[in-house]
């Protein structure tokens, strides 16, 4: 048991260190996120009412696309240098290792996005209360997104040009997150309680955190051999 835990911690430490040493790759999705959000006010008429109306939807879609961008690199380098084979061959349960990899990935790509949101939401004139609901909804939804995305990334890990397929696989499955997330933000803007959709987002996370690691592990086994 403790061996399993030690392996999980070691993997998390290694992934974090490797990610921090290539921080350019980490910053790329965040830059993309901010730039997409800058383009919308420029493309639309920059009036307060219009921007406040489309703001939540735009923020959610931009967050989805930015996390899609980050997914590409999730298993790529491990597949290239052969460490993925070692993970698959190791006696530790692959589902646990997959969970660790997906959550470290979230720590490095999803969490910065969540932290950035209160800042960029100001540009869309969202009311103060709604900004916190939005950040909370993103905080609940982005780990689920990382887990769903990891399934798709694992399926396409052995493909040389997997990026196009990745979008087709992830985005349909991300629809419930977008629906409930945007709904929570809308309710908060109208001054109502956003608890319902937030609970649903939390439930989706619980579902993903229990089932997705098994799917990721199965997909990695297919990709490796």
């Amino acid at each position: 048991m403790s061996g399993m835990l030690a392996a999980a911690l070691a993997l998390a430490r290694r992934d974090l260190r490797a990610a921090l040493r290539r921080w350019g790759e980490l910053a790329l999705p965040l830059c993309f996120f901010v730039i997409v959000l800058t383009l919308f006010p420029l493309g639309l008429a920059p009036e307060r009412d219009t921007l406040a109306a489309v703001g939540p939807g735009v923020l959610w879609v931009a967050a989805l696309l930015a996390s899609l961008l980050a997914l590409e690199s999730l298993f790529r380098s491990d597949m290239d240098d052969g460490s993925m084979e070692q993970l698959v061959l190791s006696p530790q349960p692959l589902a646990l290792m997959a969970l660790v990899k997906a959550l470290t990935h979230w720590l490095m790509s999803g969490l910065p996005l969540v932290l950035l949101t209160p800042l960029v939401a100001q540009a869309f004139y969202l009311p103060g209360n709604a900004i916190w609901v939005l950040a909370l909804a993103l905080f609940l939804a982005t780990p689920t997104l990382s887990l769903i995305g990891a399934v798709a990334a694992a399926l396409t890990a052995s493909l040389r040009r997997g990026a196009g397929v990745l979008g087709i696989l992830v985005l349909p499955l991300a629809v419930p997150l977008l629906v409930f997330g945007a709904r929570a933000t809308d309710l908060a803007i109208q001054g109502q309680s956003a608890a319902g959709p937030l609970y649903l987002l939390a439930a989706l996370f619980a579902l993903a955190v229990t089932l997705a690691p098994l799917a990721i592990a199965a997909a990695l086994r297919i990709s490796v051999d």
Partner: peptide
Amino acid sequence: LVLLFLYLGVIALRGAF
């Protein structure tokens, strides 16, 4: 509509290998 996308995803993924 999502079901249609899922079908297309399955077809595309098979074709990509």
